[in-house]
C-alpha cells in the first residue's frame, strides 16, 4: 500500500530544531559580544534580534513540516514550498518594520542572521552526518546498560 502520510509519532524535525536551539544558547552571547565590540549597544541589541529571528524561523519551519507530515505527503510538499515563501515574507516584514528604529544596526542584524543560520546548520550537520553514517553514535535518552546491550544483540 502506498503511504499517504509520514509515520505517526515521528518528528525528526523537532529533534533537529531542539538540538539547534540548544546549540544557539552558547552562540547567542558570542554573537552579541562580537556585535557589541564592532557596533556598540545598538549592534548588540540587533545581534540579539538576529539570533531570535533565526531561532523563530527554524522553529516555525519544523512546526509546519511536522504538522503537514502527519496529514499527507502532498500537503508536506505544499507546506514546504508555501512555508518558505511565508517565512521569508515574514522575515522581510519584520526587518522592514525594525529598520527604522533608532537602536537597530542593520549590518549587525543582517550578518548575524546569515552567520548564525549557516553556523548552526554546519554544526548540526557534523552531528547528523556522523549519526547517519554510524547509527551507534546516536545518543539515546537513557544510558545503555549491559542488559539493554545484550537484548540488542
Amino acid at each position: 500500500m502506498i503511504p499517504v502520510a509520514a509515520p505517526a509519532g515521528e518528528a525528526p524535525e523537532y529533534e533537529l530544531v531542539g538540538d539547534l536551539l540548544r546549540k544557539a544558547l552558547p552562540v547567542a552571547p558570542v554573537a552579541v559580544a562580537v556585535a557589541a565590540i564592532f557596533a556598540g549597544l545598538d549592534g548588540a541589541l540587533s545581534a540579539g534580534v538576529g539570533v531570535a529571528l533565526v531561532a523563530g524561523n527554524l522553529l516555525l519551519a519544523a512546526a509546519s513540516l511536522v504538522w503537514a507530515g502527519r496529514i499527507s505527503l502532498g500537503l508536506l510538499m505544499g507546506v514546504a514550498l508555501g512555508g518558505y515563501a511565508v517565512r521569508i515574507g515574514l522575515l522581510f516584514l519584520i526587518v522592514l518594520l525594525l529598520q527604522d528604529l533608532d537602536w537597530i544596526h542593520l549590518p549587525s542584524l543582517g550578518l548575524t542572521l546569515v552567520i548564525t543560520h549557516l553556523g548552526l546548520l554546519f554544526w548540526e550537520l557534523r552531528y547528523v552526518s556522523a549519526s547517519l553514517a554510524h547509527p551507534g553514535l546516536k545518543p539515546t535518552t537513557a544510558p545503555a546498560t549491559f542488559a539493554s546491550k545484550e537484548r540488542a544483540q
Partner: peptide, 23 residues
C-alpha cells in the same frame, strides 16, 4: 525527513543572503 529539513534550511540560507544584501 532529517536530511530534507537540513537541506531546506541550507537552501534557505541563500535566500537569507539575498535578503540581507537587499537591506
Amino acid at each position: 525527513r532529517t536530511t530534507m529539513f537540513l537541506g531546506i534550511a541550507f537552501v534557505e540560507a541563500l535566500a537569507l543572503i539575498g535578503f540581507v544584501v537587499f537591506f
